[in-house]
Amino acid sequence: MVALRPLAMVVLELLHESPMHPYEIQQKIRERQLGRLTKVTVGSLYHAVEKLEKDQLIEVVETSRDGRRPERTTYQLTELGVDTFRAEVLANVSEVIPEYPRFAMAVQHLHTLRQDEAVTELRRRASALKKKLAVTDVTIAELTMQDVEPVFWIDYDYTRAMRQAELDWVERLIDRLTNGGLRWPDAVHRRIEELEEDRR
């Protein structure tokens, strides 16, 4: 099976609805805000379409010209495209695979910072998460007002739930650090103080 990049997944998702040309795909991406999980430019979209055609996941239905407008090529899914897309979705829904988020790695090494420094940075993260949650809420409200079917932006619900869970966890960690519920290793504290003393 061909490995599918996020933008290729977006293109294949839209072609499930009907054959489309890249400009129409671009309009749908903008209308439904489907670029939220991957960066979309005109160049990257056309590159994704070309690769999908080369991999025989989509095929040309027709090429047409409307007046003086540029020629437009309409694509549709192939049987291989449907099967490949379906396999990718099924695998990513059901399989729990290792992911390596930067924040989890930073948390693993948090004890190498001064405790007050860790609290300051965690408070900054909590503030940033609150802002992102507010933006997500506004976007969900806009999509709802535009009557975009919720099934097309269900990942926003997922993203919001994950951010809320992270915010709750970060706030609990801040509380543990400020109320003595979590103690920094003495050896690390001493080493940090020694290094800071050497710099003076």
Rank of each mutant, 00 (worst) to 15 (best):
R5W: 12
M9S: 09
E13Y: 15
L14H: 12
L14D: 13
L14N: 11
L14V: 15
E17N: 08
S18I: 05
P19Q: 09
M20Y: 10
P22Y: 11
Y23L: 11
E24K: 11
Q26C: 01
K28L: 15
K28M: 14
Q33W: 08
G35V: 07
R36S: 07
T38A: 08
K39N: 10
K39T: 07
T41M: 05
V42W: 15
S44N: 06
S44A: 15
S44Y: 10
H47C: 05
V49L: 14
E50A: 11
K51C: 15
E53P: 02
K54Y: 15
K54A: 15
I58S: 01
V60Y: 13
V60N: 06
V60M: 03
S64N: 02
S64M: 05
R69A: 14
P70S: 14
R72I: 04
Y75M: 12
T78E: 07
T78G: 03
E79C: 03
D83P: 05
T84P: 01
F85G: 05
R86M: 07
V89R: 11
L90C: 06
A91H: 13
N92F: 02
S94A: 13
E95L: 15
V96F: 10
I97G: 08
P98W: 04
Y100H: 12
R102I: 04
R102S: 07
F103A: 04
F103C: 02
M105K: 06
A106S: 12
L110C: 07
L113Y: 11
V119S: 04
E121S: 03
E121P: 08
L122Q: 03
R123Q: 06
R124A: 12
R124D: 11
R124I: 09
R125C: 02
A128K: 13
A128C: 04
K131I: 10
K132R: 14
V135N: 07
V135K: 11
T136C: 01
I140S: 05
E142V: 05
L143F: 10
T144N: 06
Q146R: 14
D147R: 13
E149W: 13
E149I: 08
P150Q: 08
V151E: 13
D155T: 01
D155H: 01
D155I: 00
Y158P: 00
T159H: 00
T159W: 00
T159F: 00
M162L: 06
R163W: 00
Q164Y: 00
A165Y: 00
L167W: 05
L167T: 01
D168I: 00
V170K: 08
V170Y: 04
E171H: 06
I174Q: 02
I174R: 03
D175N: 09
D175E: 09
R176H: 14
L177R: 08
L177V: 14
G180R: 10
G180V: 10
G181Y: 09
L182S: 09
L182G: 09
L182Y: 13
R183L: 13
R183I: 15
W184S: 06
A187M: 07
V188E: 13
V188S: 10
H189Q: 06
R191W: 02
R191Q: 08
R191F: 01
E194L: 14
L195G: 03
L195R: 06
E196I: 04
E197A: 10
R200E: 09
R200V: 02
